[in-house]
Amino acid sequence: MTEKLAQIHAYLQTQLSEQLSAIKYEFNELTLELPVAHWLAVAEFLRQDERLACHQIIDLCGVDYLTFGDAEWDVTTASRRGFSRAVQSTEADALFEFAQPTSSATLSYPRYAVVVHVLSVQHNFRLRLRTWAENNDLPLIPSLVPIWNAANWFEREAFDLFGILFTGHPDLRRILTDYGFVGHPFRKDFPLIGQVEMFYDPELKRVAYKPVSIEARVLVPRVIR
């Protein structure tokens, strides 16, 4: 650990020992994990404290932990026609099934997390903060916009892609997906091929949507070694 990060580590431990659930040091980076109740207080402290002065939010992103650590290599069935691993089919002589994502209702751990990277331009170091939303069906996390204005679009993005709701956000609209888009595409149970495809309907004389007609393919399975 570099000297500077070690000092910050010690300082954070003395100042925030009650709020933080863990401070991790990995790959020369410090990660603070905290319950959502202290999210705003810790962020405010990091920004205001003179020894930290984390004036800049570099990044905020959502993470969906639904399939964390699942590998696709645990094949249960192989087909009569041999072994192919590309196509996920629903037919009777399906090749084999990849593990289907479990639904969040049976999940025993929090599903959605928000990861924030902050930078102190004054003291030249970075910190990572992480909190988990308590409710898997209605993930609520307080908005950081009053503390770092730049969080505005990042939170809109996390809402758009993961469906995480940021309470107190001034303008929580979708940002990257199309107008009228349904669903949150970066969730792990949202298929890569999407759910609808667009086509030109000559009878209606306009563009319309229909369910996707292509097959989901996995070209290289996930393996964990």
């Binding site: 990044d59 992103c61 993470v63 290289v220 393996v223 964990i224």
Partner: peptide, 28 residues
């Protein structure tokens, strides 16, 4: 594990945050 690496891109700070669960693909 997880790591964030940033470079001084011509436009500003470009960074990649990789969250890995030990697989051959990034988890996030």
């Amino acid at each position: 594990g997880e790591a964030y690496a940033a470079v001084e891109h011509p436009k500003g700070e470009f960074g990649c945050y990789i969250l890995s669960d030990g697989a051959n693909k990034p988890y996030r």
